[in-house]
């Protein structure tokens, strides 16, 4: 199978075709981004039947802006309740916990999207139900990423309006542009690809590297014996190693503990590798319903250790948790 692939890849035309295909695959997300940006600009003006709540506690919007925002929010209201909340005081709560409390207060268990502009902590947050599969936490973060610059510049109207138009696009099953995600993933993939290719090339080379040339255990059979019969006899392979094997043992031990296992460079059949083989504890930990996605992700505070970051995760009593993504501005 693998040798077949190798043979195929040695043919220039196959390699070239695959490379072209790969280039197309790499370009595709960016084309999609352009298309999605274009589609967002010309979204329709239907309004839905779910609740539209606008609590402008921080007095950020003029009456015209309010009506404009309500129209924009109406689009998402086709799918669930929507709320826009601005505040200058979150009390002692962090923005994430504050958003969560408000979410429970406003929607009380029903589906909803809440966008919070928190001038106290200078954070934006998009909060949604845990059950909401159309808007993932990662997408929440993408939305706040896409709009936080408006907030930084003080244009809260544009910030909120764009956030809701993107949320509506997502709720209707569409996509929003995530250019930075695609660029960063592309570059990471590029490095990974180069590394993998190089690793492959390095492995295919079986000529000894300089430091391997004069390692005695690589080029000799060694056997050690003692005249004292009481000393333990070891099942030590003829072609036994020193450091390389110990290292191999360590590496394979680590590999197993990490669950990847397999090919360490140990060349001997000797005993070290089995000795260091410890119990690979692979229990992945209690992943409670919202554990990772809500509890850990929601606190998104790079700025300061915000209090109450874990509150959402630990509050298991509620029927439906909510989570979201946020961004400083």
């Amino acid at each position: 199978m693998l040798s077949l692939l190798r043979k195929a890849l040695r043919k220039p035309w196959i390699l070239n075709t695959l490379a072209l295909l790969a280039a197309a695959v790499l370009l595709w997300p960016f084309l999609l981004d352009v298309f999605n940006a274009w589609r967002l600009g010309k979204a329709g003006a239907e309004t839905g039947s779910h609740a539209v709540i606008l609590e402008d506690n921080a007095q950020l919007f003029s009456p015209e802006e309010r009506s404009g925002l309500e129209r924009e929010m109406g689009q998402s209201a086709r799918y669930c309740s929507v709320a826009l909340l601005t505040t200058r005081d979150t009390g002692r709560l962090g923005h994430a916990a504050y958003a969560e409390q408000a979410f429970d207060r406003l929607f009380s268990g029903t589906d909803g999207i809440l966008f919070l502009i928190d001038l106290d902590n200078r954070e934006l947050r998009l909060q949604k139900n845990d059950e909401n599969r159309l808007i993932t936490t990662a997408l929440c973060e993408s939305v706040t990423d896409n709009v936080y610059r408006y907030a930084s510049a003080g244009d809260y109207y544009a910030c909120a309006k764009n956030a809701f138009s993107q949320a509506a696009a997502l709720m209707s099953g569409g996509q929003i542009p995530q250019p930075m995600k695609h660029i960063s993933n592309l570059l990471i993939a590029l490095c990974l690809g180069l590394m993998l290719a190089f690793w492959r090339a390095y492995r295919q080379n079986d000529v000894n590297r300089p430091e391997e040339v004069y390692q005695i255990y690589r080029r000799a059979y060694r056997s050690i014996s003692f005249s004292d019969g009481k000393l333990r006899r070891l099942d030590w392979a003829d072609y036994a190693g020193t450091l390389g094997d110990i290292l191999g043992g360590i590496v394979s031990g680590i590999g197993e503990a990490a669950g990847s296992g397999g090919g360490s460079g140990s060349r001997s059949s000797g005993g070290w590798s089995s000795g260091s083989r410890s119990s690979g504890s692979r229990s992945s930990g209690g992943r409670s319903s919202g554990g990772w996605s809500s509890g850990s992700r929601s606190s998104g505070s790079r700025s300061s250790g915000s209090s109450g970051s874990r509150s959402s995760g630990s509050s298991g009593s509620r029927s439906s948790g909510s989570s979201g993504g946020s961004h400083r501005f």
Partner: peptide, 30 residues
Amino acid sequence: LKLALILTALCCLVLNRFVTLQPLPFLCVA
């Protein structure tokens, strides 16, 4: 380079499907 490009495309597909890195983790990974 061609082979690296192919591998890049495969990695990219996987990453775009499963991974959205925020700026800070992105920098750490980089």
